[in-house]
């Protein structure tokens, strides 16, 4: 089982959203990381067959997905980044509608819907209108429709957006179990959601694949570039301007634990830290280390 993206490009007027992307995706969980506007959603849409590439093609087991047509859609599950629903739909209606358009029989629908409601803890809201649900619950309903036809290829665009930590962990575990002998492609800003479950990752920057590999392969170049240090609280502002700080944690005694990225230690007494995928992400997308109105630095949120 293999999904091959061969030299895919897509333009929107003057902007090249996807620029010559080639990837070979095998069974397991693939993370697709990148800042806003890096081309992730466009690439996901091309893989889903929602959009035609201007150049290149996507092949499933060696056959272009355009040629496969229905056969590909039959084994494909997709959760778009932004999706809606008909306003009159309850969760039950929505899933039954999705099952109908996916070509599932009534018996399959019943069995699959029951199983997914339980896995995604949606049983209690089954008969509620989707408009009345919270953002996280709507997201789970969207994930449920993507899994309805038990797809061999599952593409999820920002699946954990709006989910609380418990829901994210449950989804992570669900996907880990699901991904055995299936292809799961997840695009996300929340690096920690895929860091521990992904088989391989790809980082997109300005429409191109900047790096790809296992988590260990990707973070290897970050060895010696991640440091931690304890600094007095009153000196934090000074170091925020000087260094690329990824995390601040208040400690006892008026000290703050600082985790920062640098080619060389920037604070005396710094210790090298074990790099994480998030460190690589923030190293490659420094603009994502954004500031809120109070001037406090947030961890890279991708927003």
């Amino acid at each position: 089982m293999e999904l091959r993206i061969e030299n895919v490009s897509k333009n929107f007027k003057e902007k090249k959203a996807v620029d010559g992307v080639s990837l070979r995706i095998t069974a397991g969980i693939w993370g697709l990381l990148g800042a806003n506007g890096s081309g992730k959603t466009t690439l996901m849409r091309i893989v889903a067959g929602v959009m035609e590439p201007a150049q290149g093609q996507v092949l499933y087991d060696g056959i272009p997905i355009r040629t496969l047509g229905r056969s590909y859609r039959d084994i494909f599950g997709y959760l778009p980044q932004e999706f809606g629903f008909y306003p009159e739909f309850t969760v039950k209606d929505y899933l039954e509608y999705a099952a109908a358009i996916k070509g599932l029989s009534a018996r399959q629908t019943k069995r699959r819907v029951e199983k997914l409601l339980e896995s995604l803890t949606l049983t209690e809201v089954y008969k509620k209108k989707i408009v009345r649900l919270s953002g996280g619950m709507k997201r789970r309903v969207g994930i449920a429709q993507a899994l309805l036809n038990d797809p061999q290829v599952l593409v999820l665009d920002e699946p954990t957006s709006g989910l609380d930590p418990g829901e994210r962990i449950r989804l992570r575990n669900l996907l880990s179990g699901f991904a055995q002998e299936r292809i799961v492609l997840i695009s996300t800003h929340i690096v920690s959601d895929i860091e521990y479950i992904s088989t391989r990752n790809a980082l997109m920057k300005q429409g191109k694949i900047a790096a790809s590999g296992t988590t260990e392969e990707l973070v290897a170049p970050m060895e010696g570039k991640v440091y931690t240090c304890l600094v007095p609280a009153e000196e934090v502002r000074y170091y925020e301007k000087k260094l690329r700080i990824v995390n601040l944690r208040n400690e006892e005694g008026g000290q703050v634990s600082v985790r920062y990225l640098a080619e060389e230690p920037g604070i005396e007494g710094s210790k090298e830290a074990v790099p994480r995928l998030e460190d690589l992400y923030l190293w490659m997308f420094p603009a994502d280390m954004s500031y809120d109105g109070k001037g406090e630095q947030r961890e890279g949120s991708g927003k």
Binding site: R45, A48, G49, V50, R70, R73, D74, F76, Y78, P80, E82, F83, G84, F85, Y86, P87, A98, I101, K102, G103, Q145, N149
Partner: peptide, 22 residues
């Protein structure tokens, strides 16, 4: 056009029957 108005078009496009069947 309802699928586009309500944001269902992507999910319908990738379904077995796709937008054309629907």
């Amino acid at each position: 056009l309802r699928a586009f108005r309500c944001g269902m078009w992507e999910i319908e496009t990738v379904s077995y029957y796709s937008l054309s069947g629907i």
